[in-house]
Amino acid sequence: MAFVEVRQIFKSYYLHGKRIDVLKGVSLDIEKGELVSLVGASGAGKSTFLHVVGTLDAPAAGALKVGGASIFDKNDAELAEFRNRTIGFVFQSHYLLPEFSALENVAMPALIQRRDKRESLKNARALLERVGLAARVDHRPGELSGGEAQRVALARALVLQPELLLADEPTGNLDPATGEGIHQLLREVNRDLGVTAVVVTHNEALASSMPRRLRLHGGQVHPAENVVASVPTP
């Protein structure tokens, strides 16, 4: 039994009365501690797939099991708790809350659980130091650079030690040098903390550096062959 089992996910959108099928029966197994990259053409549905796995969006049909538990059977409250505890998200935009400082943003998942405030902030500070932002703990997101904000977002995703990390084009908005820093962090986190990670990316270099590579094409997920050679066809 794999850590993450995805079975027959179907998801479509309606646009101007026409149905656009994005995911057509995606099935996938991911083992614990794997580091997986997901590539594909623009609009192929990579983000959609990630949102479905992260329970941010509901498919029309399909099943999802994480650590043996059937996820879609959970009610809204249980799903919220699942998202809080088991999953960590990193998006293309940092999506930090602008009225709170970097420290509070990182501590947010713990505060949501109503944990002790001082303790949570202490843990958050440690994590921020880990990602190299000890000097920026009290700054608002508006006062941080793109790369710094993304590192804060990564710290926030990791503060409760999730079992599954879902990253949707984490370095899409960053320059190559900064992006490489983030990639390094991802690899470290996977190696040191044993976090299972699925990373959606356009970046061929990042994708090829991941141990397992997948491609989303035609509404299905296949293992990707040599990523550099094949040109994605719509």
Partner: peptide, 16 residues
């Protein structure tokens, strides 16, 4: 609106 989505993604339930 954006913040609501982010909070929900972080695990705040509907009641919250």
């Amino acid at each position: 609106r954006k913040e609501i989505s982010v909070l929900k993604a972080l695990g705040v339930p509907d009641g919250g």
